[in-house]
Design a protein around this nucleic acid. Structure first.
Lengths: 226, 226
DNA sequence: TGTAAATGGATTATGTGTAATTTGAATTGG
DNA sequence: CCAATTCAAATTACACATAATCCATTTACA
């Protein structure tokens, strides 16, 4: 466990992704997403209270909330731990995303404006211009690309669910670097989605999105096997 | 707000649906599902502490967990309320169920045994033999029918998600009676699913399930409009 | 002597009481 | 009739007491 206090980077269109009024809750979650606490780590209330300079109760409540969201598990009289994000979990998460994303995306294909596409293009441009070692930043931009398309969907529960599963993936990936090949593929896939949107071919866009998710899932399951 | 302490009925195959080690949490959730607390009701910690004869902290933690699960919303310094289960929420929930159920069911169509089908048939038989006024019991059996098919799915997050959304629906329906016509239709739809399974026609079964969900959604959205 | 059970102390979770800040509504005054 | 103030009630945070768990060491027995 690493004791650097996390400091989520926030790009322009991405600020709203991690925001939460409860400071302690947001910090713990960000620390889980950043891999400062990893799967299975104990979350000792007294230690966290010191770390975030508050008392035990706020910590306990934040942990309970995270437990409700599935990021944390706890056993009676034996405290809380970061949830077991195993390989099986990743398969589960990917399968849920595979259900959700086309659903969320479908709405977007009927509502997007020129301005939206410009923003997407901007993010894509940032992805291209990243240096080879900025893995975290790349993943963040990838998520941001999708976030821009889903965030205004009318089904807020579905959007929240997507966010939650994305965060779990982020926690699972941790700091594992992405291969440059996969990065290029991801950029290409995003490009394909974007161009289908520009050319007003929603069916192609949906197909491209589904391919993108499947390929991403395949890549990560291979990487995490070893 | 009605102050009868809830007492969830539990049929044979359904016991595991509401079980939770935390007594206070389970009680509050059951009370929300039963409509004892309805959408928008304040959850005053001191009152709940008296009601469940405990102190404020356990109540606060249970509420935080329920907040994480989406059953409760809270504003800073202004306490917690039962989440706003509006009509829009119902549409959202149905749409998520529409994504989830075929996914969960697909696995079942490849794994069910003769014994499973007998249980399903048993539940169906109970549904048929209910008296006209047992609305709650009917809905419970309906849920149980689906629960039997999904509970053993490998994707536990998806199963939990399904449960959560089912509970929200239950809270939304509250004690609204079901028309006898809809009851008969529901029975017919279940019958169709079951017979497709018996005849080993998984595609037909999945189609029947999708129809069943769509028709249920249509019925309830009409009922809740007035 | 080796292994398993038992013991005990330290650590941590859980539950209760209490003080302080905030809220929201009723009351008062203009 | 509207605005400011006051006051009760509830939330929040904190300190403390109790109870359970964990881990290392010791003890008992084959």
């Amino acid at each position: 466990m690493n004791w650097v206090v996390s400091n989520m980077p926030a790009s322009e269109y991405f600020k709203d992704f991690f925001q939460h009024e409860n400071k302690v809750y947001a910090q713990i979650l960000a620390d889980i997403a950043q891999g400062i606490y990893v799967s299975g780590d104990r979350l000792v209330t007294t230690a966290l209270a010191k770390r975030y300079s508050t008392s035990i109760n706020p910590i306990r409540e934040a942990i309970k909330q995270l437990e409700g969201e599935g990021f944390v598990t706890s056993q009676k009289n034996s405290g809380a731990r970061v949830a077991n994000f195993s390989q099986a979990t990743m398969r589960d998460v990917f399968e849920i995303l595979q259900l959700l994303e086309p659903y969320l995306f479908d709405w977007y294909t009927q509502r997007y404006t020129q301005d939206c596409l410009l923003k997407l293009n901007d993010v894509l441009h940032q992805m291209r211009s990243l240096s080879a070692d900025e893995h975290m930043k790349f993943r963040e931009l990838d998520t941001e690309f999708h976030w821009l398309m889903y965030k205004h969907h009318y089904n807020k529960s579905a959007v929240q669910l997507w966010k939650k599963n994305k965060l779990i993936l982020q926690a699972l990936h941790g700091n594992i670097p992405i291969s440059l090949a996969r990065r290029q593929h991801a950029i290409d896939e995003h490009e394909k989605i974007l161009s289908a949107l520009v050319n007003k071919k929603p069916q192609d866009a949906i197909q491209a999105l589904q391919d993108h998710i499947t390929l991403g899932g395949q890549y990560w399951s291979k990487v995490l096997v070893q």
